[in-house]
Design a binder for these strands. Structure first.
Lengths: 327, 327
DNA sequence: GGCAGTTTGTCTAAGTTTTGTCTAAATATA
DNA sequence: TATATTTAGACAAAACTTAGACAAACTGCC
């Protein structure tokens, strides 16, 4: 029985460093610890009770309120204790930021998943009632807690998928969709800008766009975030870009990859079919620039004779992997 | 709850280095941080709140005014902090102070105009060569030096006008235009979000959108920024919104004004003409909601018999004035 | 330079919540 | 019997809340 010691109130009070009165009050009011009892009602504290109490005392001394932390699990207490530790005085903001990023990554995998689930739920829950505050909060929180890559892949992509479904089933209005899209786009752009600031002076690596008439920009935008996450400086040219302009941009910036986002579109939505668009793009693109197709656009590559080798990358996960390969 | 510390006002005041009074004033007046609350109303600060506050304190000490920086995003703060830092270290505090005073006084009214001119030039100069870094810097600087209203009216609107001219004259490529638009939009959205955070809990005042088929969103977006600057909470629904959805959104949010952004478009660009669109919108809009038309769309109002009184507001300056009237 | 208006830190006042401490009476232990 | 522990409840200090006042400093403007 290593952990079932039988320490009395007085002993524990001395060991943990608080009065017996307080000790009992903490138990009565906040359930800070729940020692075993003798048949006659006397408390029997264990060694781990003492440890827990010591931790609580320490945290309270650091300014936490006992009523708020008393019911936390041991693990949560330990974590809180760790996160309270860095109380170094005047650090440069840069260092602070780095530290914060470290803190982010040190969340364990399991927790991350749970958190992602919560954020997803929160987002999808807040949309129907125009609760933009909650949406904004959830997005901000997600962007602060997760890496840009995870933010894009684990939060934004699923949300967009679900939104698409709901809209097509009539379970979500177009105005709600627009509102959410707008917020999501601005969050993605902020993430992209943030990453991009770290890639200045780097050469442009991947140019992204969608074809003329294709207004679905999110695929490319997430693609750009992924590129930047892998250290490949993206040139996000937005949706609806004519082939000559795409080629010209690639030429001017000497990007190594041209990534065209594609979507299954009804015929006639685009002034040129994907096949026609690709033919033109192919002929005007520099020789040493790779041509990638992202997304699930309906394209018959077989019939085309293109100079560039074309690589089709259907999903964002595959793109993530492909980028890992060339970075 | 990984990041949801339970720090009290007092603790945070000690950690961040400002008085509890000031801390609350910053929250009340500028929304510098928004801690969670207990059921009884006591504030619960998180560790990241503390980080943010430390940053704010530092920036305020360096001469920034809290009212201007309190609502900036965390990253913007970090960036601002970095950009304030450069020549520190070897200088005496006295010299720093003198320098700061110089910097302050040299920003007189007359120079605001000159500064606007410089930023404009910088922007238009950096675009042709894909110098996105300079573009981003200029935009960030503009957004930090100017009020959101001035930023939108004095910088963004003229730039967009000039860009439109250049594109139509073939003096600017479409890819450059897309790149710039994307940055501008994200800057405007950031400004909007920043303002919006100060308007939470306010009722929705103005709903903005453009008609189905009209993809020009900048007018409405700037309009939204103007609304927010005047304390009128905007609901920016984005471009390309069908009339029923517009009306539904207005109904759900009880917005007092529906503002439709319009543009002179070639016939056939929109599935419904403005006249048809307006007729539908008019019939579905709540009675007590005003209907405003922004921009220079070509609309024959005379022939229409609408229930709502329609107010046409051709320019952003006029909109600014109209908003002043109802705020 | 002087003047009106805004910004901002500080403070007061009155009321609520949290929390450590204590009392009283009953029971247990040694 | 003397000492410890139990419960329930009382109490007050400390801390927190909001609303508003106020003056110093800063702003833009003439």
């Amino acid at each position: 029985m290593p952990d079932s010691g039988s320490l009395s109130v007085k002993t524990v009070s001395r060991l943990a460093g608080l009065s017996a009165h307080t000790l009992r009050a903490w138990e009565r009011r906040y359930g800070a610890v729940t020692p075993r009892r003798t048949e006659t009602g006397h408390r029997l504290y264990s060694q781990s009770d003492v440890e827990r109490l010591k931790l609580l005392v320490k945290l309270v001394e650091q300014g936490n309120s006992i009523g708020r932390i008393a019911r936390l699990q041991d693990e949560e207490l330990a974590q809180l204790c760790r996160s309270m530790a860095p109380e170094r005085g005047s650090q440069s903001p840069l260092l602070q930021e780095l530290e914060r990023q470290e803190q982010k990554t040190d969340a364990t995998a399991g927790e991350t998943h749970e958190r992602i689930g919560r954020i997803l739920e929160e987002l999808l829950d807040a949309i129907p009632g125009f609760e933009l505050d909650r949406v904004a909060d959830a997005l901000t929180r997600a962007r602060q807690t997760l890496s840009p890559r995870d933010f894009a892949l684990e939060i934004i992509a699923p949300v967009l998928g679900e939104v698409g479904l709901r809209v097509s089933h009539g379970r979500m209005g177009i105005s709600q969709e627009h509102l959410l899209s707008s917020r999501i786009r601005s969050a993605l752009e902020a993430a992209l800008e943030q990453l991009d600031r770290g890639l200045r002076s780097q050469p442009w690596a991947v140019a992204l766009a969608t074809a003329q008439g294709d207004l679905h920009e999110f695929g490319s935008l997430i693609g750009a975030v992924l590129c930047a996450s892998h250290g490949l400086r993206p040139l996000f040219l937005g949706p609806n870009l004519p082939a000559p302009d795409f080629a010209e941009a690639v030429r001017s910036t000497r990007a190594r990859v041209a990534l065209l986002g594609t979507t299954p579109l009804p015929p006639g939505a685009m002034p040129l079919s994907y096949e026609e668009y690709l033919t033109r793009l192919d002929s005007q693109l520099p020789r040493d620039c790779a041509l990638w197709l992202g997304g699930r656009g309906d394209i018959k590559l077989g019939a085309l004779k293109l100079q560039h080798e074309v690589r089709a990358i259907a999903t964002l996960e595959l793109l993530d992997h492909a980028l890992k390969g060339i970075s």
